[in-house]
Simulated assay, not measured.
Amino acid sequence: MAALRRGLIWTLLVVALVAVVTATAVERLRRPEPPPVFDPVPAFSLTNRDGRTVRLQDLKGKPWIADFIFTRCPASCPLMTARMARLNRELPDDLDVRLVSFSVDPEHDTPQALQRYAESYKAPVRWLFLTGGKDEMYRLSRQGFKLGIDIPPPPAPGAPAPEPILHSTRFVLVDGQGRIRGYYDGFDEESMKKLVRDLEAVG
């Protein structure tokens, strides 16, 4: 009888162990694979649309999504900002994340101009619109985020005028430690879905 009880106990222990291992494996399958770690974002000190100074350390502790835009951009920026606004609406409520739009036209994009632009997209407080000196903004784009930015030459006679500032249309995911975790095509639906999955993995 004692041997039977011992056998039953061992059987129950094995069943429990298998259940734990199975549950752990299922949880790992459900959990998104963390995205790779790229370079850290360099320190910066910029001005938000409300006039408040925002530094890199102010953003640490929570993941954030960045893009580079300017308010008088005629083509790509309205689409990117509309995409960011859609992200703001559709992100899960339990994800504590910030949205950060950096201006590449700081000579025109004063905090007041950025505030008007943000209001036109019903941007909440967690969505920052940052501006600063031109050299700092260009350096942050090129060297910090590894995103191109340039002033195009004048168009040939009769040719359509390009955007006054050429810049990247990619979104960038930054984790709570200030490290870049991914780049995403702002005009590609699948790429943006991956952004949300990666955000959930690092959040």
Rank of each mutant, 00 (worst) to 15 (best):
A3F: 01
L99P: 14
P74Q: 06
T71I: 09
L56K: 12
R181D: 06
A113R: 14
P153H: 04
W64V: 15
A82N: 02
P152W: 05
V41A: 08
T81D: 12
Y184I: 07
A123M: 06
L12H: 02
T24I: 14
K146D: 05
D67K: 02
G182W: 00
G7S: 08
Y117W: 04
E119L: 06
P106T: 10
L114I: 10
P154D: 11
A85T: 04
G7A: 10
P36R: 01
I69S: 13
H167G: 09
L87Y: 00
Y184C: 05
P124I: 06
G133H: 10
R89T: 15
R55G: 12
E33T: 15
R28N: 15
R28L: 15
T81G: 04
Q143G: 09
Y184E: 08
D94L: 05
L17R: 00
A66G: 09
E200W: 00
R5K: 13
P74I: 07
V97I: 15
Q143K: 07
R89P: 10
D58T: 08
W64D: 08
Y138R: 03
T11V: 10
D185S: 12
T53D: 08
G176F: 01
S76E: 06
E190C: 03
T11E: 02
T53R: 11
L114T: 11
T11R: 11
K60C: 09
A161V: 15
F44V: 04
P34C: 02
I65N: 01
V104P: 06
H167Y: 04
D93F: 01
L140E: 11
S76G: 03
G132V: 04
L8E: 13
R28W: 03
T53L: 08
G133Q: 07
M137L: 13
R98Q: 15
A75R: 01
T47Q: 12
R170Y: 13
T110Y: 03
G144Q: 06
L79I: 03
G186V: 00
D150T: 04
Y117R: 08
G148N: 07
L29T: 12
T53A: 13
H108A: 10
L59I: 09
F38M: 07
D39Y: 00
R31T: 14
F129Q: 05
